[in-house]
Design a protein around this nucleic acid. Sequence first.
DNA 1: CCATCAACTGAGCATATGTTCATGTATACT
DNA 2: AGTATACATGAACATATGCTCAGTTGATGG
Lengths: 118, 118
Amino acid sequence: MSNVKDTCQVEFVHSDNVNQVNSMMESDDNLFELAELFKAFGDSTRVRILHALTFSELCVCDLAQLLNMSSSAISHQLRVLRGQKIVKYRKDGKNVIYTLVDAHVLTLLEQGLQHVKE
Amino acid sequence: MSNVKDTCQVEFVHSDNVNQVNSMMESDDNLFELAELFKAFGDSTRVRILHALTFSELCVCDLAQLLNMSSSAISHQLRVLRGQKIVKYRKDGKNVIYTLVDAHVLTLLEQGLQHVKE
DNA sequence: CCATCAACTGAGCATATGTTCATGTATACT
DNA sequence: AGTATACATGAACATATGCTCAGTTGATGG
């Protein structure tokens, strides 16, 4: 038989903690946006793009060469990164040159890499 | 007609940059793991779990109450977070109590939140 | 003006992901 | 032992995601 509620029966297990934590939590909107931000970092192609931009500004074409992928695929991913304000771009003739938005992004990448290499 | 190669025709657009960056890039393995790490942060439910654990250790039951979700759903997500060594746990009777692994995780969450609130 | 190239975009498709449901496991209590 | 509770897990299903393909836009140069 299935449970009516798949949560704890005995009121709260640690109700004091739960209530206190609940009062300190960020808004759901902020946390949703935070998840969207990390989601943008959470793809092989996109981290490789971002990691490359750590060293130098690059155009779509450069990135396609560097990652050995179609420029269409790169462009699609850059769109995601632009959407989350992780990269910015400037036009240079036919080329569009991308850079990381700010130091936050760099810090996130570095902290993440440090964690991976522990 | 479709292009034979959907990359730039004129050798490299900025071949010096591309070559130099290529030599500085982390291994694909590391970057793949980095993407997996961020992917684990990249879900509403999981960031809410992590954000909650920022304030206090909590058992599965607490988290289910706090996020108003089934303990099964929480458990599945905690599995992902354990897999990436983002949370650790200890048993306390029938309960399993979760905490963030280390300060790296906290830093990542804080940097991310700061970016979201710019 | 026309051709070429870098970049962007929408549709389509195969794969990945998150939740529910049902069941399994471990611990505590009588 | 038997029951109840907390947690974990596998299957199934609906949705999300990343790439390719085809076509479009905008800039450059003959």
